[in-house]
Design a protein around this nucleic acid. Structure first.
Lengths: 362, 362
DNA sequence: ATGAAAGCGCTAACAT
DNA sequence: ATGTTAGCGCTTTCAT
């Protein structure tokens, strides 16, 4: 009805201005909530906006504001293959095309990160662009993407220890925040968990249950989280008079947890407690224990780590150390937006405290 | 070194042009791979690009090309709460903040979708922007986002049957493709699985194993996929001389699968086969069966659906019907890009055939 | 408080 | 084959 002679493209500021009988600048002010606009005119403009069905063109706005209102959410790895994704599902389903992305996203962990990120971003009118950076080439694309101004900064979830991406980003002067401390020190903000404290919680719980022959299935030892969880566990055991505890290294996958449990059981048939460095491996351990006729928790108590969905899927449900992934992801996002607002602010780190969640397995 | 008097902002086309001693247009041509540029000059330009460290500004480009080179990947639902996510994990971990997003992304299903989408998009220089649309307000934001030109089209994964988003999008003349057929017919492209065929495969497998007292744990019956899987199962059973089969409705969560299995077992203690409409429920069923002293598959055979990571996490690993989620997601993406290339092309649907995957449970 | 006008960096006619 | 030029739609001084 109120359509003019235009037929083509979406309405522009110009159209709204004409309809409202004011200038583009005024419309712009109203839309961006800048004060100093007569309330009456504001109303007229708002009318015109809804009549014309106007929606501001984001590219045009970005061109002048130099902000994309988007951040890259990057899942990053060090190499091409090397199955050791952060908390890989260990899945070999047909859907698992052997690709990095397939492995990574099969894990509920990333879903939790996404949740935390989106929940923080959304009320602020920003959105995450998903990117993978598992090859050198893909990493360059991430850098290019940011340099093009397609995203204002990057949130990085690394699956490998020696990930070069954080270094590349800081070198290029791009804003980025990590989930988990980088293996080599990089002047960059990150959030992380007090892994050692978590492992201590697990060890103490096992000890308090009167387990005396406790073993651990560690995570990959080239990953900081894997190292820290093991260190925390060992320290606590030592402090309680157990200088030696059997250890089998896993890769954070269910499969590797099963294999590790088999080894442990073969070498120490009498063990009565197991600390698995994540839930997936804890679940695998439970399976193996049951196959060997051990009851959980009566014969062998099992404690996991993360409080992922695997902990609840397991029978019995896993007693585990909760990692508040969603909150950590939200905080990581907050750190990034802070940095964007104040580009000169120094890098910081925020460490979260884990929490023991007691369920049926220990 | 080759820096001029500029100190501020990123290098622009103008800078490169000056460095190469040519015009902006020529540089643009080289960068966009347009022919008709002297190879020698191309080389000079390329040099200039790398010397200046030039990266094209995406906003400026989008402004003129009217393309964002991004698509919205929307996880959509019908209402605010109503826990019935598509294939909810049934998790109640502390990480599960009760939020829609938390529930949705706890499920490996979405990870598989993301994988398929990214793998198709990436080689084409495009990226997915993650959005949730679980409330009326969030849906409006998705529509606005697209109208602003922030994304060129939308990929929609609905968690509910009566999702209004597809309708909103088509009304607004925006390009969109769905994963799974909409509950009410909407002139929009989608990919889907031949759910009935999948259920048939499951039923025939159970029958071929000489199961005679077969029950099913269905999905939510207000979801097309839930209906179709049940219908396919029943038809096949009937065709094989089983006019009646016990059914318990589940919600695609592990928990609901457990509850359904309890009911089934109470009413039909002698059953010897179960078809669960998804793996999560199948896993729950296995747990309950074992608790009731039934061996799987010796006493009761169980077949799941999806071939999700849950199928492999289960003990015994689930025999299941594989849904090629990654390929379906890639095809969905292809349909969208097709549509963007040819906006007038009619809506189409692509239906994928499921496949039986035999493992330990049946 | 409002308007006029100058770009933001790029692509795409059009001209040569 | 290359250069010139005119915008794309918006924000933002700078006048008024």
């Amino acid at each position: 009805m109120t359509d003019d002679l235009r037929s083509a493209g979406a309405p522009t500021l110009e159209d709204v201005a004409r309809a409202a009988g004011v200038s583009r600048a005024t419309v712009s002010r109203v839309i961006n909530g800048v004060r100093n606009v007569d309330p009456a005119i504001q109303e007229v403009v708002r009318q015109a906006v809804s009549v014309t069905g106007y929606a501001p063109n984001r590219a045009a706005r970005s061109l002048v504001t130099r902000r994309a209102d988007a951040v890259a959410l990057v899942v990053s790895g060090a190499g091409v293959e090397a199955g050791a994704d952060r908390e890989g599902s260990g899945s070999r389903s047909a859907g698992d095309q052997g690709s990095f992305t397939a492995q990574v996203f099969a894990d509920p962990f990333f879903g939790r990160v996404v949740t935390g990120v989106v929940n923080y971003l959304r009320p602020r009118g920003m959105h995450p662009v998903l990117m993978f950076a598992e090859t050198s080439r893909a990493r360059d694309e991430v850098v290019a993407y940011l340099r093009q101004g397609s995203a204002d900064g990057a949130l990085i979830v690394s699956t490998h220890a020696e990930d070069p991406l954080p270094g590349l980003l800081t070198e290029a002067g791009l804003a980025a925040v990590l989930f988990a401390r980088p293996a080599r020190p990089v002047p960059i903000s990150y959030v992380d968990l007090a892994h050692q404290d978590g492992a201590r919680l697990a060890a103490e719980h096992l000890l308090a249950r009167d387990c005396r022959r406790i073993a651990t299935i560690s995570g990959p030892l080239d990953v900081p989280a894997g190292q820290a969880r093991l260190a925390g566990f060992r320290d606590t055991m030592a402090r309680h008079g157990h200088p030696y505890t059997p250890i089998a290294e896993g890769q954070f996958t269910q499969e590797s947890g099963e294999a590790a449990m088999e080894r442990l059981l073969a070498a120490h048939p009498d063990l009565d407690g197991v600390f698995a460095a994540n839930d997936l491996m804890g679940m695998g351990a439970c399976h193996v224990l049951r196959e060997h006729g051990r009851r959980v928790p009566e014969d062998v108590a099992v404690v996991g780590f993360d409080d992922s969905s695997a902990a609840l899927a397991c029978r019995p449900p896993l007693t585990t150390v909760r990692q508040p992934v969603e909150e950590m992801a939200a905080e990581m996002t907050r750190l990034l937006l802070d940095r964007l607002a104040r580009p000169t602010s120094p890098a910081t780190s925020v460490i979260f405290e884990p929490e023991l969640v007691v369920r049926g397995s220990a």
